[in-house]
Design a protein around this nucleic acid. Structure first.
Lengths: 262, 262
DNA sequence: GAGGCATACTCGTATAGACGAGTGGGCAAG
DNA sequence: CTTGCCCACTCGTCTATACGAGTATGCCTC
């Protein structure tokens, strides 16, 4: 067991009333913040920290699990504990649904990802007819049944977003919208062709910790929240024609909105 | 030690390869989701769970800490572990800075909170002149110095938001903006009086886990992320006249935006 | 040289025990 | 009746130990 490089970490203050595991977490956090451990770098192993601080392993693990739930580090079984690298972020601009972005054959996600130099993928595509949940039903004006389109988006093999669109069935049945691939410009282009000229979108944004299911689907590390975005699309008659429910890995996104000062 | 009410929780599957503490967490999570433990209700004590499942206390604590970092429960020293109640949410609409909301004497926060039946407070007000951080400097067009206005917002005694405004010093010095209370309509009204007619806002939204400092300032429970919002205000000449950096308790907010379909 | 195995290192899971500290209720003394 | 103390119950912190399971490396065999 190699000793820790001296100077990297200090020692404990036994007179402090701050719990030992908190002191250890503090020191590691500060070392990371100061760049003494770079992004992706491996922290000292649990055994090394046990030796260095002269505490039991559970105390060290307690400190590490604290940093983990802060999203600062992540552990890999058999390898070690690593400073969590900040993944490239995807910037969502508020004009991303503007008609001018809807011309080309590819989906908005694909075009934008390729422009940013990433390899986009869409997966788990699923189109079904269902009874709407209470929330979706209220937003869509209480249709009896809805068409749901689920899909997962990945960048360079990493899942970043999981989305479900809901459309009133009377509007979408037997149209290209009910096809797995709705064609160039996506379902918004198809909606307009069907006479539902889009007028405005409303987006609601929440942030929270992911459910176990979401952790699996988005392969989230500990300490990564999700952004939950619900978008409702209205046509010019004021009818809600689509609700899109999206759960995004929060470490992969920045949302950007332009607001007029009116 | 009273036995657990039977039927509330099941037993473990020793043949499963799912870790025991995960099975315990699963059962508790499901019981909470099904409403067997209501919001604010007390879970069985650690000792009761130890007896019920026949495991050691650390295993039970491991399960509970999992639920805690999911934001499902929170523990109170000396009292027990409780299902975390969902606090009332504050809805931020995208027209909240519209001029028509700027007429009255009170701040937007105060008016809106009272309308929602909450008791608003603003605290830790601090006005200073500083050198801008690299990020703020870039957004404001590299001013040498900035006026910073910090404040914390509370609803019914609970901190929900911590905000810092940055304004170019040449623009704000010796104006009402540099006063603790800038007067009716807030600093946006004052900016317009000074000839900086506001044209548009840009908002950038991220979500992440809070730093230890933010946990203290916002008195956040474990498993509650923060929403980090950075707003830049531009006047009609295209100049950035204010950057407002806001950190919000994610469990207290829903952001809502209206987007034209253009 | 290629493949496979042993081994040492990593973190993951679990046990058993000890003491500290915050909370609340009951009981006893005034 | 009120005050104050004690005690039981709660979670918080920490130690010591054990074994399992994933990973990487180097050596040995073929």
């Amino acid at each position: 067991m190699a000793a820790l490089p001296s100077g990297l970490l200090g020692s404990l203050d036994p007179t402090s009333d701050r719990a030992v595991f908190r002191q250890i977490a503090d020191q590691l956090r500060e070392a990371i913040d100061r760049g003494r451990f770079a992004e992706g770098a491996k922290l000292p192993s649990e055994a090394e920290l046990v030796d260095h601080f002269g505490v039991s392993r559970m105390t060290v693990r307690n400190a590490l699990s604290m940093l983990q739930s802060e999203g600062l580090v992540s552990s890999e079984h058999g390898k070690g504990v690593f400073v969590r690298p900040r993944p490239p972020v995807r910037r969502l601009a508020s004009d991303r649904f503007a008609r001018r972005h809807r011309e080309q054959g590819k989906s908005a996600f694909t075009v934008e990802a390729e422009a940013a130099g990433s390899r986009p993928e869409v997966d788990n595509l699923e189109v079904k007819e269902e009874r709407p949940s209470a929330d979706v039903s209220a937003r869509l004006g209480a249709p009896r049944r809805v068409l749901t389109r689920r899909r997962r988006y990945l960048l360079d093999g990493r899942p970043v977003e999981f989305a479900t669109s809901y459309l009133p069935l009377d509007l979408a049945r037997d149209t290209p919208i009910a096809q797995p691939n709705p064609g160039p410009g996506g379902i918004y282009a198809r909606l307009e062709e069907l006479g539902h000229k889009l007028d405005r979108f409303e987006e609601e944004i929440r942030a929270r910790m992911p459910s176990p299911q979401e952790i699996k689907t988005l392969r989230l590390a500990a300490g990564v929240p999700v952004i939950h975005l619900v978008r409702t699309a209205y046509d010019t008659k004021g009818r809600a024609v689509e609700v899109c429910d999206t759960v995004m890995a929060a470490d992969a996104y920045v949302l950007s909105y332009q607001l007029p000062a009116t």
